[in-house]
Design a protein around this nucleic acid. Structure first.
Length: 255
DNA sequence: GTTGAGCGTT
């Protein structure tokens, strides 16, 4: 157990936050500390955990005291295999308070709003070119892509459970998607496994879903039942009773 | 027991 994250952020005034991705779910701050501390002075290490389960989310935040050291750590630990997994080290884009600031509008329109304060202890004359390249090849690209993607909070959480084709074609995705969707539509329209469309059963949109006030809303909110139509319990099926019972008539059964 | 895009706590 490390004392990191136990007392909250110590001081983010002169610190550089690094984001470590692709780490194993079992990796803890103690495991990353020696690795990152070797390349600079680590002020704090924080690993976000799930509120419900408390498990590691798979990424950690390493706060360095100086940006140059953090840069070196990124260059050195980025791509390093830890616990059998290649980790990705990069500068943190959003700060801990970014949520408040980014509530649909950026209050701080200063470009300085970053998790890293490049404090030039030494001359910048010796800056590497790699820095320049990365600044434009990774940070910028990813930043814009992520921002435009409109990521959902539960999206990634749910995604991780379903290994949905990670990388596919580039331009073919759209076509395939359309095809898939169309197929689904047709399938539904043709009523699979049933040739009787039951025209008489035409469900009226008005009658089919009568506004029950806040009943459905409350159910959806309180519980996690994604299948509201599951109203017929499987344990007590009328069919079963019919088969077992000789007289499905309630009159016969009544004493 | 599992998983794998991403950005954070007192």
């Amino acid at each position: 157990m490390s004392h990191f994250g136990r007392s909250g952020p110590p001081d983010i005034t002169d610190t550089c936050s690094l984001l470590v991705l692709n780490i194993t779910f079992r990796t803890t701050a103690d495991d990353l500390f020696p690795l990152f501390d070797k390349y600079g002075k680590v002020v704090d290490i924080f690993i976000p955990k799930d509120r419900r389960t408390g498990d590691s989310r798979g990424f950690a935040f390493v706060r360095y005291k100086y940006a140059d050291e953090a840069q070196k750590a990124v260059d050195r630990l980025d791509g390093r295999v830890v616990d059998g997994r290649e980790i990705t080290v990069q500068f943190a884009k959003y700060g801990p308070n970014a949520e408040r600031i980014q509530k649909g509008r950026i209050i701080e329109s200063f470009p300085r709003s970053r998790s890293c304060n490049p404090r030039r202890r030494h001359r910048d004359d010796h800056y590497k070119d790699v820095d320049y390249r990365r600044s434009r090849s990774r940070s910028y690209d990813r930043y814009e892509r992520d921002r435009y993607r409109g990521k959902g909070r539960d999206s990634r959480r749910r995604s991780r459970s379903r290994s949905a084709s990670p990388v596919h074609s580039k331009g073919r995705g759209r076509r395939r998607y359309d095809d898939d969707r169309r197929s689904s539509s047709r399938s539904r329209s043709a009523s699979p496994a049933r040739r009787s469309p039951s025209p008489r059963k035409s469900p009226s949109p008005r009658k089919a879903s009568p506004p029950r006030g806040e009943s459905p809303d409350r159910r959806s909110r309180g519980g996690r039942s994604p299948s509201p139509r599951s109203v017929s319990p499987r344990g007590e099926s009328p069919d079963r009773r019919n088969r077992n019972g000789r007289s499905p008539s309630p009159r016969s059964v009544s004493p």
